[in-house]
Amino acid sequence: MTTFLVLGALVAVATALGLIWKSGQGKLRASATHSVIPAEFLTPGTTTLLQFTTEMCGPCAALKPQLQKIALYRSDITHREVDAVDHIDLASKLNIRSTPTTLIVSDTGEIRGRINGVAPARVFLDAVDGTPTATQENTQ
């Protein structure tokens, strides 16, 4: 009986941890950093979806074509992919702790929000357009 209770508790803890992690994925959050993104990562006149990725990141590969498609259909949006390991200083300054993390950056380099993980295209579009349907939370 005790064995089953312990095993049940172990599964419950693992499930709770997974749900906590999942609840933080795919949501637009306000950026706590006041860093300005360098111009080399921006395209003048457009909002940039700055996707931080790494070579070993599986979900990054899933998100990339989705963001590319958004940029293809919206001339005011640009998608840029940045390897977090290759740009370690920038990633550390922006507190990139997991990938994919996508920053919504204005054409002046101001960070308007960040989205951890994979999310539907609507979330990114809402983030760019500033519509209230996106879940906005404070971060860090």
């Binding site: 997974g18 070993m56 550390s92």
Partner: peptide, 28 residues
């Protein structure tokens, strides 16, 4: 075994790869 179970469970059920996150820490 319990710690390893939690990591494997998170990977299989939630697609959360703990090892991948740790790799990023080292790669940085």
């Amino acid at each position: 075994a319990g710690a390893a179970f939690i990591a494997a469970f998170l990977n299989s059920v939630f697609a959360y790869c703990l090892g991948c996150e740790i790799y990023l820490v080292f790669a940085k």
